[in-house]
């Protein structure tokens, strides 16, 4: 609020701030989410079922975990399209280790390490040579999945220890709450706190808004970006553990096309693709919107390819919506105050 505003009619300001809350992205998302739930539960009696809802989270939690770190990447003004290939790469390494007789603990370590190493490689090339992230991760997307193809060819790894299955298929105790979901919620809390309550988070926003200015104000821009890319690799490794454990096999085309779905989720969650703007709540709501929307459409037998049309439309309409609302908004005496 600058000086000019204080002179203005207090009523007007109150009205506008109420409007601003209404237009807030998370509120719109929440509204969409409620719509999805209402429509789905009307279309199918099986939607609002506790067991069903819990079990459907298996289908999108792996993507959701990567979406959390992708949020950081995009807020930084970067992008990472190699995440799905990192999943394939770590899954292949875990499969190799498993066939060599490594135990569950070792497999988890290998999965996490392979993921972070791949992420570090991305971050290193991007920051060291100053190349746009999209170009580098485009290359590493082919490279990582290509290595998976080189190792596996047309075969598959299917031999995993029985205890390894817990990560992707297990529930917490005797409840119907999946282990994956709890893991995701814990990670979401950590990522949310880091983004919104620590100086690291503030620095990330600063880099996304103006990386040159951020560097001049003493923020180690490249080191933070390198860490973020490594963490994204780590999260992809984690997702790879969960996914491999859930489906119990590794093929080189595992998680094909996930990168775009994850980016869609993050952008729908209100993170500006140009960087510098975003909110953990938006991303979490968006994860559940897309997850439940797909679940509901699956219940009424809509084929997967048709779902992609609806997700694509949702993405474009959701991005257009704020602009349309902006135009409908009453013009006030201090012009565009909404930013």
């Amino acid at each position: 609020m600058n000086k000019e505003n204080s002179v203005l009619d207090i009523k007007k300001i109150r009205k506008i701030s109420l409007l601003n809350i209404m237009w807030q992205w998370e509120i719109i998302l929440l509204f969409i989410f409620i719509m999805v739930v209402i429509i789905n539960s009307n279309l199918s009696p099986y939607f609002l079922d506790y067991t069903n809802l819990m079990n459907t989270t298996f289908n999108f939690i792996e993507k959701a975990i990567i979406a959390l770190s992708m949020m950081f990447v995009i807020i930084c003004g970067d992008i990472d399209i190699s995440v799905a290939s990192i999943i394939a790469l770590s899954s292949v390494f875990m499969g190799m280790a498993s066939h060599a007789g490594v135990n569950t603990f070792g497999l988890v370590a290998i999965g996490l390490f392979a993921g972070s190493a791949a992420g570090f490689l991305n971050g290193f090339v991007i920051t060291k040579f100053g190349i746009p992230a999209i170009a580098v991760t485009l290359g590493s997307m082919s490279l990582f999945r290509g290595i998976a193809y080189v190792i596996l060819g047309d075969k598959a790894f299917t031999k995993y220890p029985i205890s390894f299955a817990y990560f992707g298929q297990g529930y917490i105790g005797n409840t119907m709450i999946p282990f994956e979901l709890v893991l995701f919620l814990m990670l979401a809390i950590i990522f949310g706190i880091v983004l919104h309550r620590t100086t690291i988070g503030r620095k990330v926003f600063a880099i996304g808004n103006n990386s040159t200015a951020a560097r001049f104000s003493g923020i180690p821009v490249n080191r933070i970006r390198l860490i973020i890319f490594t963490v994204t690799g780590l999260c992809s490794g984690l997702a790879s553990i969960l996914l491999t454990s859930r489906i119990g096999s590794t093929r080189p085309n595992i998680a094909d096309g996930w990168e775009l779905e994850i980016i869609t989720t993050v952008v729908l969650g209100g993170v500006a693709i140009t960087g510098g703007k975003g909110n953990i709540f938006g991303v979490i709501i968006s994860i559940f919107i897309i997850g439940f929307l797909k679940f509901g459409m699956g219940l009424i037998n809509i084929p997967g390819k048709v779902m992609t049309i609806i997700i694509g439309l949702l993405l474009i309409l959701a991005i257009m919506l704020p602009q349309l609302l902006e135009r409908l908004k009453p013009k006030n005496s201090f012009g565009k105050v909404t930013k």
Binding site: I131, G139, S142, L143, G146, G153
Partner: peptide
């Protein structure tokens, strides 16, 4: 083997941009 294609493509892209 054609399975090498993708990895080599990725390597070339990275090499070229660097």
């Amino acid at each position: 083997s054609p399975f090498w294609q993708m990895a080599i493509q990725g390597f070339i892209i990275l090499f070229a941009i660097i």
